[in-house]
């Protein structure tokens, strides 16, 4: 089983091209955010909040003009970037004759792809949320650049321990959950910004300039809040399944389904934090900003598990493995 080098190189090119596409997308969305639909938020936010819907129900055509054209450009670039990422992962998988999520680089790329696809689905459902694409794509570009520079690993076959269909199931579901949780994280940050803006406006107090600038164009807080909840509600069962699948695989591979290995422990921590978030939303006195902060914490745990546990703690592990 030899790695097909030309395909692997093609995969790398597609990866780089996707970063370029997303970057142009950022420019498009940022343009729309800056120029598009002056005043439309104020007009629609009241009905949206009152309706108790997700914005899907109160969709009205957005203003036409330069802003909108830039928004469409952003959207087109997002779709293009996602397609390039799919190609990049597919080539890698074919080149190394395995599923393309065998190392941290591939994991990060695939998770980000899930985030982008979830965002596209969101925009499909509620076109007027399109302009928040700028807040999705900026971190996406950062993550991809980071993955390409720091996490990059050559397309290589997997070691025997990873050759199991549980790898396909377990890692794929972790990737989906991570990607969805990341979208939820972005939405929650936007919610907190909007919330802060609304509060300052209501109290007539001052606010940081960034919030004063960004705030009025953000979707209404209630919608952002509901969307971050629904993304978690979608991702949480998938993550639960991923942890269970991981335990089943660990039982077959390592002889126990649970062993408090740091990776497992942090998966549990993240799971507990998201369970906290779901609880908080149903607990008086915890709804809103407090619950949103728990959502941020949940994503922090996911990231910690991915970056720190893989690179620092596992690194220590192999270091001290030298007796």
């Amino acid at each position: 089983m030899a790695v097909n080098d030309s395909l692997a190189a093609l995969s790398d090119s597609a990866f780089t091209a996707s970063i370029v596409a997303y970057s142009v997308g950022v420019v498009g969305f940022a343009g729309e955010y800056a120029f598009g639909g002056r005043g439309r938020i104020a007009r629609t936010s009241r009905e949206q909040t009152a309706a108790g819907g997700v914005g899907t129900e109160t969709v009205t055509p957005v203003d036409s003009g330069a802003g909108q054209r830039l928004g469409y450009l952003g959207l087109a670039c997002t779709v293009l970037g996602a397609a390039l990422q799919v190609l990049s992962l597919a080539f890698r998988g074919i080149a190394s004759e395995r599923v393309p999520w065998g190392n941290m680089f591939e994991f990060a790329s695939a998770a980000v792809l899930v985030t982008v696809l979830s965002f596209l689905w969101l925009v499909w459902q509620a076109p007027r949320l399109r302009h928040i694409g700028v807040f999705v794509l900026i971190p996406v570009v950062f993550i991809l650049v980071y993955a390409g520079l720091i996490l990059y690993a050559d397309a290589e076959p997997l070691v025997a321990a990873l050759r199991s269909y549980w790898l396909v199931i377990h890692v794929a579901t972790v990737i989906i959950a991570s990607g969805v949780f990341f979208l939820s994280f972005v939405l929650t940050v936007l919610y907190l910004l909007r919330q802060r803006y609304d509060r300052s406006v209501a109290e007539g107090g001052s606010m940081p300039r960034a919030i004063a600038r960004l705030g009025p164009r953000l979707p209404p807080a209630a919608i952002l809040d509901r969307l971050s909840y629904r993304t978690v509600a979608f991702g949480f069962p998938i993550f639960t399944f991923a942890v269970i699948a991981g335990a089943i695989w660990a039982e077959a591979a390592w002889g126990r389904f649970w062993g408090w290995d740091p990776k497992e422990t942090w998966a549990l921590i993240a799971w507990l934090v998201y369970a906290c978030y779901l609880h908080a939303r149903a607990t008086a006195g915890w709804k809103g900003v407090k619950a949103a902060r728990i959502n941020l914490l949940g994503f922090f745990a996911m990231t910690f598990n991915f970056l720190i546990i893989n690179m620092v703690v596992a690194g220590l592990h192999s270091y001290s493995g030298l007796t």
């Binding site: 108790g52 819907g53 899907t56 129900e57 509901r226 909840y229 629904r230 939303r281």
Partner: peptide, 8 residues
């Protein structure tokens, strides 16, 4: 609460 889509 949290059951979006009901209005449609």
């Amino acid at each position: 609460a949290d059951s979006g889509g009901f209005s449609s």
